[in-house]
Design a binder for these strands. Structure first.
Length: 270
DNA sequence: ATGGCCGCCCTAGGCGGA
């Protein structure tokens, strides 16, 4: 089994102490980060190496967005198309431990779920469409050992938000986004591992707004972060285990996202 | 919905997040 974590940390430099604590407690093999909010040269590479994660791939930009993968096992960076029409640092791909790993930070999409008046929403849908085109064009999902993770900024299911009814017109849960995300998922027959491990009707969230004084009080969360396996890898993973580390949301100076971890079949040792 | 927050940036209000 391999242990893989995905976490939107909302600034890797500011959040480093919390990330180090998490790594000590949870000890994943691979950690995928989103919103590192720094250039590659500003990434705290030495701290991660010291924590046991010397193998690193970083796609950064100044002050915003940015993704990184740190690993106990050697990794090699893969070329991946830039799905972002604005050229922002939102995707990276590596080969590690016998599979291909795609780490994504999909655009949030602004406030109004209307492409005619909100360019950010149009950007989000364009990004999703580019992703779907990519997987449709590949068409080799039968044998691919592939993992897709990240902050996808969409809560697809009725029980992936605190109130389906109240969020139907709120960006992250609108039918147009959910359809676009499902099209990406179906284009490669990806398997949503959270819902393999946790029943569809059980509320499951990974993000809680900073604006609420006490996130535990009403538990008004959304499941925006995801770990998907290609069908072959999902079939090989007999007893997968999925965890939302929501205790991290209560730590001092938390990210608004909780880390999520999947333990699953490992094709080969690093 | 998030009302009342957070983190970034050529340090201060504007932008982006979701």
């Amino acid at each position: 089994m391999i242990k893989l974590t995905s976490w939107n940390v909302n600034s890797v430099r500011l959040r480093l102490p919390q990330i180090e604590k998490f790594l000590q407690e949870t000890n994943p093999d691979i950690l995928c980060l989103q919103e590192i909010k720094c250039l590659a040269e500003q990434f705290p590479a030495k701290a991660f190496a010291k924590a046991g994660y010397p193998h690193q791939a970083i796609s950064g930009q100044k002050g915003m967005h940015g993704v990184a993968i740190v690993s106990k096992w050697p990794l090699s960076e893969e070329c991946i198309p830039d799905f972002c029409p604005r050229g922002e640092a939102r995707v990276q791909s590596v080969k590690v431990a016998g599979f291909t790993l795609l780490n994504l930070y999909i655009p949030a999409g602004g406030d109004e779920p209307d492409v005619k008046i909100n360019p950010k929403f149009a950007h989000k849908l364009e990004y999703l469409n580019n992703l779907q085109q990519h997987f449709t064009a590949r068409g080799d999902q039968d044998n691919a050992l592939e993992v897709l993770v990240g902050d996808l900024n969409i809560a697809p299911g009725e029980f992936d938000v605190w109130s389906h009814k109240q969020l139907l017109r709120v960006v992250s849960h609108t039918p147009i986004e959910v359809d676009a995300l499902n099209a990406v998922k179906n284009s490669f027959d990806f398997v949503d591992m959270a819902r393999v491990c946790v029943p569809e009707t059980e509320p499951l969230f990974t993000w809680w707004s900073y604006r609420s004084k006490d996130w535990t009080k009403n538990n008004r969360g959304r499941r925006l972060d995801h770990i998907w396996l290609s069908p072959s890898l999902a079939t090989l993973s007999k007893n997968p285990k999925f965890t939302v580390h929501n205790d991290c949301r209560s730590w001092e100076r938390p990210s608004d996202h909780a880390p999520i971890t999947l333990e699953f079949y490992q094709p080969e040792n690093g």
